[in-house]
């Protein structure tokens, strides 16, 4: 006997519900992508026919290109520096010491603070210290303050889970501290490091609030996007946004490919040998 709500009925309801969630999540992006091909002057309807001129214009626009390059460079540096710092702190947290739990929480707490508060705090501090706003000074620091806790959260679990006996075994077999790190620990935590690098890259690449306060007269892509939305809202803005989303997705896809490629490679190796 079936219950009052038949099993297949419930499944259908949940299915529809899930589809609604997906639509809700993706409709804004799809709208933007579609409108980036709209041959009209403003963002939005009416539909004036299909065109790729906004893409051509954006790609030829030196300001947009520079903003994009600044964003990529900044994101690369932020990604490398914050992953290195995150790794260093994660290694420091392997030891037991007094107040360890408190220190751990203190490291994660900034994630819960509003970005705008941190941005204002920073610009005030840098100002007091005589540091002028700019891409490679205040903006870089501001991004690092934002991303280092995320880097740590990606790396620490892997470092923490690693059995120190395995490193002791390597030392016992004649490996000095650096060799132990390079041949034993690093290969095992590499997925965490990659995930951290990827995550910090996209966090920095998309960051807006902090950058707005900290960048001064320079541009990143989100800042440039914001400025043209304010001053000259044409479908070119949609084209730039679409390109930016594509780029972010490409980076994530590359990262995932690297991670799964490593895993597949190992599995294939084990299969071929075993």
């Amino acid at each position: 006997m079936k219950g009052p709500l038949s099993r297949s009925g419930a499944a259908t309801a949940f299915g529809l519900f899930a589809i609604a969630v997906y639509v809700f999540l993706y409709l804004p992006v799809i709208t933007m992508v579609v409108l980036s091909f709209n041959n009209s002057i403003g963002i939005g309807l009416p539909w004036g026919g299909f065109t790729t001129r906004w893409y051509r214009e954006s790609l030829e626009n030196a300001l947009a290109r520079n903003a994009f390059l600044s964003s990529v460079q900044l994101a690369v540096v932020v990604s490398l520096v914050s992953s290195s710092l995150g790794l260093g702190v994660a290694l420091a947290f392997r030891r037991a010491f007094r107040g360890k739990a408190l220190m751990l929480n203190a490291l994660i707490l900034p994630l819960l603070m509003p970005g705008i508060v941190l941005a204002v705090g920073q610009i005030t501090l840098w100002n007091l210290l005589g540091l002028l706003p700019g891409l490679w000074g205040t903006a870089l620091l501001g991004h690092l303050v934002y991303t280092v806790p995320f880097a740590f959260l990606n790396i620490f679990p892997r470092v923490h889970r690693f059995d120190p006996n395995i490193e002791a075994a390597a030392a016992d077999l004649g490996a000095g501290p650096w060799t132990v790190f390079a041949t034993i620990l690093l290969p095992r935590i590499l997925p965490g490091l990659l995930a951290s690098a990827l995550f910090c890259f996209t966090l920095s690449f998309d960051e807006f609030t902090r950058t707005l306060f900290l960048i001064g007269a320079e541009n990143t892509l989100p800042i440039y996007f914001w400025s043209i939305i304010l001053t000259d809202p044409s479908p070119a803005a949609s084209a730039i946004a679409t390109l930016s989303v594509l780029f972010s997705l490409g980076i994530v896809a590359l990262g995932l490919l690297a991670l799964s490629g490593r895993r597949r490679g190992r599995a294939a190796l084990a299969g071929a040998q075993g």
């Binding site: 395995i166 075994a169 016992d172 077999l173």
Partner: peptide, 27 residues
Amino acid sequence: PYRRNINTVFQNYALFPHMSVFDNVAY
């Protein structure tokens, strides 16, 4: 330890999980 001519068999074996048996023994 890495400069002592003495080797240890650990209680939980502590094999290197990311290396083949050959690479473990060759380490």
